[in-house]
Nucleic acid binder design. Structure first.
Lengths: 226, 226
DNA sequence: GCAAAAGTGTTCCAGATACACCCATGT
DNA sequence: ACATGGGTGTATCTGGAACACTTTTGC
């Protein structure tokens, strides 16, 4: 912040405001999130959450939505998580971060991430590299919120592609909860939610009976179950 | 924001960051909150949530804690609610507000509010005056969070004075839930939480059997019940 | 003695859990 | 024919909901 380029002046000091985003997906039966390498600024060589400054007259929610599109090209479930503003969390200056988390089906990100050579990386939640700033705290916070919401909402459905099998859905629950579930009870419960419906397609992928495909009744809509 | 007094300059524009606080108490069997009159700035003549700018190198959490002490003199349960930053929510400039809510036992605020002549006012949640900015939205958000937390935490205990009767506690639940509860079931449930304990005092206050007084086992500590 | 709030247990119901076998397919 | 994951129903348990009378006090 050099004086020669400083142009926006205020009577009182102002912290910098940015958004940081935890973008979750399920890959290979693991909860996975997107990180970007820090090449400059503080924390060089570490990985960080994607993020950026909130622009003038921009709602932080819109800022997060924009960021999500830039990183993934997709327009998926997004929710504000918490606002972090401890002084010192960014060693350069007082920086307030409105953190968000997003859930994206792994099928929606095939293209991106391979194609653009920006060096982003997907990392399993339980095998993360060293993170910049307080991003480890933010990630932990996001995972807790996600796990809590499994219990009283249909948030897990946001990880599913357009069509999916019940076994795949059960796998997503098991991955997030880190616990096996009973197949019959799971099916009973998830069908009782009335949030998914049968298609008349099935998928055959191996030496066994084909699986019926299901779809969301109301895609993109989160529902509460308690 | 006149140029002559502007001293803090940045290369990019920055929104103003402040905290706003919903301070709840229970008064006369009603959910009640603290408002301050707007005498200047935008929204003159309306009432607003107490709030203030986040200072340089101040954690918004600390900013909220400071504000709470300034307004009530008390150091009680406080939780970050949500961050509101829609452009236009403050007509003067792009203002981002990290909103908090606090719960205070009505007994802790006897002195303040009467004594200081700053004209603050306590208003029943379901009989609020016109509020400035987007504060009605913030208040609604806080009430929803509070009601939700009743179901899976001991948050209601934060409204209780040091010693209280089970009927008083039941009244707090009924006030927030806006529904009568069964006395026997309520007592069974709340005692099963193991968060309160009998004192060997009782309170006599009328032509009826005295009520046993209870206290928190771990004051100030929120516990989860599911 | 009567009005008013405090205190106290049991039955019933619904939702969650535990559990094992047959089905359709590819090789 | 056999290996693999898909698909299905019932019995049990547990936590929540419904429900009425006795106790202690002040007047």
């Amino acid at each position: 912040m050099t004086l020669t380029t400083a142009r926006y002046c205020y009577t009182n000091p102002r912290p910098a405001v940015s958004t940081d985003m935890v973008i979750f997906t399920i890959r290979d039966q693991r909860l996975t999130l997107l990180l970007v390498p820090r090449s400059n600024g503080g924390a060089r060589g570490k990985w960080a959450l994607p993020g950026g400054a909130v622009r003038q007259d921009e709602d932080p929610d819109d800022s997060a939505r924009r960021l999500l599109r830039e990183e993934t090209g997709a327009d998926v479930y997004l929710e504000q998580l918490y606002t972090f503003g401890r002084p010192g969390r960014d060693p350069r200056e007082h920086a307030i971060s409105v953190a968000y988390y997003a859930l994206i089906p792994s099928t929606k990100l095939e293209l991106k991430g391979e194609v653009d050579g920006t060096g982003v990386g997907w990392f399993a939640f339980d095998d993360l590299p060293a993170l910049a700033f307080d991003h480890a705290e933010i990630v932990a916070f996001a995972q807790q919120r996600l796990a809590a919401k499994l219990d009283y909402s249909t948030i897990a459905l946001q990880f599913m592609p357009e069509k999916f099998t019940l076994s795949e859905l059960q796998g997503v629950y098991e991955t997030i909860l880190r616990a096996p579930l009973d197949k019959r009870n799971f099916r009973k419960r998830v069908l009782a939610l009335d949030s998914i419906e049968e298609t008349n397609e099935e998928r055959r992928d191996g030496a066994h009976r084909p699986a019926r495909l299901y779809r969301l009744k109301r895609p993109g809509q989160l529902e509460f179950t308690k």
